[in-house]
Amino acid sequence: MTAQLACMTADVPVGTAMRVELDGADGAPVEVAVVRDADGDFHAISDICSHGQVSLSDGEVDGCTIECWLHGSTFDLRTGKPLALPATKPVPVYPVTLDGDRVLVDVDVTIA
């Protein structure tokens, strides 16, 4: 599969995240958090926290990180690595392409 339309740039204001479901190569849905960091750059990571199995898109975006709202684990949006406990496992990061106002994400490739 190739990059899929996740949302429009206007759907995700700076410093926020949005949950989307995209189709994986096997046809199963993949839950993705599309995040716009403090600099306005877009990132796509798994929407499921590796510690608490809750939606990361409901968390707070700070700089280039997102904090899980339930237990406070913080993840680097570029690498998916946890920066604060209790999470110890990274979350997948997916490539993002901007095509005009369209935000495209390829969930069949992980970059971190």
Score class of each variant (00 low, 15 high):
residue 1 M to F: 06
residue 3 A to Y: 11
residue 4 Q to D: 09
residue 4 Q to Y: 05
residue 5 L to C: 03
residue 6 A to I: 10
residue 7 C to P: 03
residue 8 M to I: 03
residue 9 T to H: 00
residue 11 D to T: 11
residue 12 V to A: 08
residue 12 V to M: 09
residue 13 P to R: 09
residue 15 G to Q: 14
residue 16 T to V: 01
residue 17 A to P: 15
residue 19 R to T: 08
residue 20 V to S: 05
residue 23 D to G: 01
residue 23 D to Y: 01
residue 23 D to T: 13
residue 23 D to Q: 08
residue 24 G to F: 05
residue 26 D to E: 07
residue 28 A to L: 10
residue 29 P to L: 03
residue 29 P to W: 05
residue 30 V to C: 06
residue 30 V to W: 02
residue 31 E to D: 02
residue 32 V to F: 01
residue 33 A to K: 03
residue 33 A to T: 11
residue 34 V to D: 03
residue 34 V to P: 06
residue 35 V to D: 02
residue 35 V to I: 12
residue 35 V to M: 02
residue 36 R to K: 14
residue 36 R to Y: 02
residue 36 R to F: 04
residue 37 D to G: 09
residue 37 D to E: 01
residue 38 A to W: 04
residue 41 D to Q: 15
residue 41 D to S: 15
residue 42 F to R: 12
residue 42 F to D: 14
residue 44 A to Q: 07
residue 44 A to K: 10
residue 45 I to D: 10
residue 50 S to M: 03
residue 52 G to W: 01
residue 52 G to M: 06
residue 52 G to A: 15
residue 52 G to C: 11
residue 53 Q to C: 11
residue 54 V to A: 07
residue 55 S to A: 12
residue 56 L to V: 13
residue 56 L to C: 11
residue 57 S to G: 04
residue 58 D to V: 05
residue 58 D to W: 08
residue 58 D to K: 08
residue 61 V to M: 05
residue 62 D to C: 07
residue 63 G to F: 00
residue 64 C to R: 15
residue 65 T to N: 11
residue 65 T to G: 01
residue 65 T to M: 02
residue 66 I to W: 08
residue 66 I to P: 05
residue 67 E to L: 01
residue 67 E to D: 10
residue 67 E to S: 13
residue 67 E to H: 02
residue 68 C to P: 09
residue 68 C to N: 02
residue 69 W to T: 04
residue 70 L to A: 14
residue 71 H to W: 08
residue 72 G to C: 05
residue 72 G to H: 02
residue 74 T to R: 15
residue 74 T to P: 05
residue 75 F to Q: 07
residue 75 F to G: 00
residue 76 D to T: 02
residue 77 L to C: 12
residue 77 L to M: 10
residue 78 R to W: 04
residue 79 T to I: 09
residue 83 L to Q: 13
residue 84 A to E: 13
residue 84 A to S: 14
residue 85 L to H: 14
residue 86 P to G: 04
residue 87 A to K: 02
residue 87 A to V: 00
residue 88 T to A: 09
residue 89 K to H: 12
residue 89 K to M: 11
residue 92 P to Q: 00
residue 94 Y to C: 10
residue 94 Y to L: 05
residue 94 Y to A: 07
residue 97 T to Y: 00
residue 98 L to S: 03
residue 100 G to P: 12
residue 100 G to E: 09
residue 102 R to H: 04
residue 105 V to N: 06
residue 105 V to H: 09
residue 105 V to K: 09
residue 107 V to E: 10
residue 107 V to M: 04
residue 108 D to L: 00
residue 108 D to S: 11
residue 109 V to D: 05
residue 110 T to P: 06
residue 110 T to C: 11
residue 110 T to Q: 14
residue 111 I to Q: 12
